[in-house]
Design a protein around this nucleic acid. Structure first.
Lengths: 168, 168
DNA sequence: GAATGTTATATAACACGTTATATATTTGCA
DNA sequence: TGCAAATATATAACGTGTTATATAACATTC
């Protein structure tokens, strides 16, 4: 077995390491979402949550809210438009701004998710790292080891269309 | 100003958040590398470091060492081959395996980096988060705030070809 | 020892972030 | 008023991760 250099190098590779763990966590979260039978990508949720919390937002405001650049927002909102979860219209006072709002279908998805998937994911992640403390490198090691020992989806129980096949 | 939903949602968006911080850290690290006049990508360093530490490694071993999937390794090693930092040859006993080793130029780069860039990056990251403690969400908030207050490159001092322009 | 399965790497297609730049609208000032 | 600058979004090109699959070499089994 080859040593994990990214872990060994510590602070020097912290960027790579955070990315790597984030990708792993998002992939695991995606499993929970798929399990619940919701046809959406994990990375699209923050956009819907932002609009749900703040009301209709422009592309630029969404970029601030979600913390990515404007072209990334434009693309993801394009997908959510295709999927019918959001609507977009020009702001009446400024034709450059596009106001993005939740469609009925989008609001339903958010309401359903708030009641089922989101608490489960949050609880599973909290189970993974909620009690951790101490230096960040040690916590990250614990998170990686924890995910290897028991993936996120095994730490959550979502009631959904496929619940029977996964309930233990 | 719009609220940062990814931060607000806490454990629910931890994956997105780790990715986002990791990307930011890597981009900041890239600035330090560029400043030092080394023509390499931040994400390529762990590959060189792995071979430096363990000796020649196969594609599969590199995937383990760096913690990404095999196609990702194949691509990055292709780039490092183009750049002349590594050599690749089939293993004598098993023609399927490709042994990747540091070229003279690659070994020089690693030796130089070990003496200059790497300690600076590690020190800058340690300055950012070395003294942190407590729950991970709080530490992540401190890291994001810290980067916004003083980017990584302002926390490091690299002696390099452009040192004059950046020394304070 | 030829067929079959397994393993290691390469390639293709895609996801989703970035930077750089184009376009459309609004703002501000001579 | 009309034109230059600023702002908001869209688009293009790229980086780097993923999964799925193809290919080549080795291992096994009858």
């Amino acid at each position: 077995m080859v040593e994990d250099v990214v872990r060994t190098l510590g602070f020097l590779c912290l960027g790579s390491r955070l990315r790597r763990i984030g990708e792993r966590l998002q992939a695991d979260t995606q499993q929970v979402i798929d399990e619940a039978g919701v046809g959406i990508q994990a990375g699209q949720y923050p956009f819907l949550a932002a609009i749900d919390r703040a009301g209709p937002l422009t592309i630029g405001e969404l970029a601030q809210a979600v913390g990515i650049t404007q072209p990334g927002v434009t693309r993801t909102i394009g997908q959510l438009l295709e999927l019918g979860f959001v609507d977009m219209q020009s702001a009446p006072d400024d034709q450059r701004r596009r106001l993005v709002s939740l469609s009925d279908k989008g609001q339903e998805l958010v309401d359903h998710s708030k009641a089922t998937i989101w608490p489960c994911v949050a609880a599973a992640v909290a189970d993974l790292c909620g009690d951790l403390d101490g230096p960040i490198l040690e916590q990250l090691a614990a998170i990686e080891d924890g995910l290897a020992a028991l993936p996120l989806i095994r730490r959550s129980t979502v009631a959904g269309p496929h619940a029977l096949s996964t309930a233990q």
